[in-house]
Amino acid sequence: MKSLSKGAMIAALAVTAAFGVSQSTDAAYMLNSEVKDATPALQEAASIGVRTYENPMMKDAMDKDAIVVMSFGTTFKDTRAKTIDATINEIKAQHPNVKVVTAFTSHIIIDRIKEKEGITYPTPEEALDQLKADGYTRVALTTLNMIPGMEYNYAGAVFNHHKQDFKKMTLGVPLMYWMGQEDQRDDVEQALKAFSSQFPMMQKKDSAVLIMAHGTPDPSNAYYAVIQDRIDSMGLKNTYLYTVEGWPNLETVIPQLKEKGIKHVTLMPLMMVAGDHANNDMAGDEPDSHKNILMKEGFTVDTYLHGAGENQQIRDIFAERASEAYDALVK
């Protein structure tokens, strides 16, 4: 355990005493072994990290395994192939004898792809219903989410609503989940190391990188403050994060750029795909696009229209997250 101040140590012991949760370097928390009478509510509260459910009513069922990869999806076909499809192909390659199903969480995107391309992607619920009908008994759920925001809450709700349909079900974590607290790994730093490998070379002090994330009304929007903290502590100079639908927004960042004397910015999305937000909100030709807003403020602007999923290192991390969920399924 990392060293703690006396006050922090007392607080940590108080939490352990109250909730019986012990921290671990594993992908999930476990209840303290001294807790002998954990109620369902306490067990649910301690379901942090990779979640696992075993159905006692199906303990004798034959094992037949599948992985369901959940993504918001995109109607931009080219970026979908380079990001979502490429990541899922990597997951398939690492689990050659396991059925891997792609499910989109955006019902609107599912409808638009079906109309324009004639391809039908299932929702997670539809994918699980079909797997159950086909006799699959153990399912690992994994996501292509960046942070555990509202989309990940959807994944958690799918897990809770369908876990009793199978002998065993697990739910993995998104790209950035653990933040280095106590002895846990730091997913934020790991992801930023991977993501920053595609940063442009900035040889001038008046140049900056603006990373556009999505944002969420969920309290997990606070992850973006942690991401900016890691950006700063890792020495990624003149690098700022803002969100399309959360905080901080572009208007929050512009004064910081001016104060720093920044003249040139490169906009790039911290999103799985370079879809509507990247092509239109960030780099579009409309007057209210981020590019044009910055140009009106006197900045020279370049745009980087590549989803994070085009980065091999990012795909590798998502494949690791899928393997964590699958390993918890089969152990």
Rank of each mutant, 00 (worst) to 15 (best):
I84H: 01
D26Q: 09
D26T: 08
I10L: 14
K260T: 00
Y326A: 07
V100R: 08
H161K: 13
G49C: 08
V173Y: 00
M70L: 15
P56L: 06
Q181W: 03
P255E: 06
T303S: 13
R230M: 05
Y240R: 02
N238W: 01
L236N: 04
M30V: 09
P124W: 04
A157D: 13
Y224V: 10
A28F: 05
D183L: 11
D60M: 05
E324F: 11
A308C: 14
E286V: 09
K114T: 11
T137M: 12
V226P: 04
A86W: 02
F318G: 09
S197Y: 03
K82A: 11
I119D: 07
K296D: 14
V244I: 15
D288R: 02
G7K: 10
K167P: 10
N153D: 15
N279R: 13
K263E: 06
P200G: 02
D327F: 06
Q164C: 00
K260S: 06
F159A: 08
Q130P: 04
G309N: 07
S289W: 03
S22M: 12
E310Q: 15
A28Q: 10
G49S: 08
H290K: 14
Y136Q: 03
M146Y: 14
A328I: 06
M212L: 13
G298M: 02
M1G: 14
V98S: 10
T83S: 13
I108M: 15
Y53I: 05
E182D: 13
K168C: 02
A45D: 08
D37R: 13
K291C: 02
V50K: 12
H277V: 06
N249S: 15
G118K: 08
A328M: 15
L294A: 01
V173F: 00
V101A: 03
M70P: 11
P219S: 04
V69D: 12
Y154N: 12
P287Q: 10
A283C: 07
S233M: 03
T216G: 04
S3Q: 11
K99L: 10
L305Y: 07
I113D: 02
V265S: 00
A191N: 05
N292W: 00
M282D: 06
Y53M: 09
A308D: 03
Y154L: 14
G215F: 11
E125T: 10
Y242K: 08
T39K: 12
S3T: 12
A8I: 00
D134I: 04
Y326M: 14
K193S: 03
G309W: 03
I108G: 03
M234H: 05
P148C: 08
G149L: 13
M212A: 09
P200W: 04
L329K: 06
N32T: 13
F76I: 13
M179G: 02
